[in-house]
Amino acid sequence: MASKTIPIVDSHIHLFPADELDNLAWCKPGNPLAKQHSLEEYRAAAHAGAGPDSPPLRGFVFLETDRKNGGDGTDWSGPLMEIDWLRRIAEGRPRPGQGHAAADAALCLGVVPWAPVHLGPARLAEYLAEAERAAGPAAWRLVKGFRYLLQDKPDGSMLRDELIEGLRLLGRKGFVFDLGIDQHRRGRIQLEEAVEMIDRAHEGVLEGEKCVFVLTRPPHTLDHMCKPDVTIINTADPAFIAWRSAVFTLGKCDHVYMKLSGLFCEMSDAMRARPADEIFMAIQPWLAVVLAAFGPHRIMFGSDWPVCTLDMPRGDGDGDGDGAASPWVKWRDVVRRMCDLASLSEEDQAMIWGGTAARAYGLEID
C-alpha cells in the first residue's frame, strides 16, 4: 500500500502540561484526561504497535485545549498562558517534567490557538496583537489559524454580526478558522447555521481575503466530520440525510476543508472495540460521503489525540508497553482502509495524509 511510505501530518492534536491543568476549563476531578498529555506521550502513542513498515510521522498541528477565558471570552490570561507554553515547544526550551525535548520543536508544524472571534473585529484585533507578543517570532510563525468553539453555544451564535465580521478579519489576515459543531447532540440546526455562517463570511469578500474553514472538533466533546451519529444503522434515517445534505453543501465551497478524525467517541462501546477493518466497514457510509463531497485534496487525517483514547477497551490505550496498537494507530488504519477501498492514487493518498493539511494551514514542510 502506497500510504505506508507517505509521511503523516496529524492535523489535530491536543497537549497540556500537568502544572497547567487548573487552567483548563473542562478539567475536573475524575475526568480521565485530567493529567499531563505530553509530546513524549504523543510520540509513543503514534508508534505503539505500528510495525516496522508504518509511515513516518512528519509532525502535527496543535489545537487549543479550551483554557479558561472568563466564560464570556474577555479574560485572555488562560489562552495567552497556553501560547506561552507553545512558545517553549517552538523554541526548544522545555521545562523539566513537561514531557518534551528541544528536538521536538521540529514536530510542531502548526498551531491553532483560541481567539475571541465572537467579540467582533476590534476586540479580536487587540487579542491578536497580545497573542503575537506572547508567542514571539518562532511560535507566531507557526500560528496558522484560530478556534472559537461554537458547538456548545446557543442557537443563533454563529450568525451574529460580530462573529461574522471577526471571521472576515481572520480572512484578511490569512488565518484559518477551525469550526467545531455538533450535529449528533445539537441536531441539524448547527449544520444549517454553519452553512449560512460561511456564506455570510464570504459574501462580497475578495478571493484572496476569504477565510479558510476547517471543520473540526473540540477537545472535550467530539464533532469531527460535523460530529455525526455513527451508531445509526439505517442511512435512510433523517439525521444521516440531514448530515449528508449539509456535508455536500459545505463541500461546494473551495475554502472549506474536512478533517477525518474524532469518530471513536461517536461509536458505541462494542463498535469501538472492534478491529480497524470492522470499524471501517461500520462507518463506511459516512467516510464515503465525505470523500465524495470534498475529494481527497480537501480532507485530511487527524487523530484528535488524546481525546481518541477515551473509553477505549483495555489493552488499546496509549500503547504503553503492552504491544497493542494505540487508538492513534487504530484510527490511522481505518483511514488507510478507506484509501485502499477507494483505490486512491499515491498522489491522492499523499494529500489525505499530509498534503491537504499543508495546503489548508500553509505549513512549511520540507
Rank of each mutant, 00 (worst) to 15 (best):
E278L: 07
E130L: 15
D72G: 04
S245W: 07
V329Q: 14
A125R: 06
G51S: 08
L128T: 02
K35T: 13
A246M: 02
L363N: 10
A139Y: 09
R123Y: 15
I8Y: 09
D366E: 15
L169H: 01
K252H: 11
R123N: 13
A125F: 05
E64C: 00
P52N: 10
C226G: 11
W328E: 09
S326W: 07
G59V: 12
D254C: 06
I89M: 08
P238H: 06
G166F: 08
A129L: 05
D277E: 15
A293N: 02
R186M: 09
A45M: 12
L291E: 13
A122D: 13
A102W: 01
G97Y: 02
I365Q: 06
V61H: 00
E203D: 06
D10F: 11
A45H: 11
R147N: 04
P327T: 02
V195R: 04
A292G: 12
I352T: 06
G171S: 04
E91A: 09
T231L: 04
V335D: 07
G136P: 03
K227S: 15
L169Y: 00
Q183C: 09
M81H: 12
R244A: 14
D75L: 03
P79H: 01
A288K: 12
S3D: 11
H297T: 14
S245G: 07
V143H: 02
A138P: 09
P52Y: 08
M338V: 06
Q151G: 03
A288S: 14
K144P: 11
G295A: 00
Q151P: 01
A18L: 08
D348V: 12
E165I: 05
T309G: 12
V176L: 00
S261D: 06
D366W: 13
V214H: 00
H297Q: 15
V9R: 10
L167G: 03
E192I: 13
V289G: 07
E130Q: 13
W85N: 09
R298K: 08
E41D: 15
T235M: 15
L159D: 11
R133H: 03
D182L: 12
I299W: 07
I233H: 08
D254H: 12
T249A: 15
T74I: 01
L310R: 13
D304A: 10
A135R: 00
L39N: 13
E278S: 10
G136K: 03
H47C: 15
R43S: 12
L291T: 10
Q349S: 14
I89E: 05
L80D: 03
R95G: 09
L107A: 05
G99R: 10
E41P: 12
G110N: 05
L169I: 06
Q284I: 00
E132P: 01
L21Y: 06
T216S: 15
A106S: 14
I6D: 00
R314N: 09
R186Q: 14
T309Y: 11
N234T: 12
R274W: 05
E130V: 07
C226V: 00
G302Q: 08
C265D: 14
A270T: 13
V112K: 02
D152A: 11
Q284E: 13
P96V: 04
C253W: 10
G262S: 05
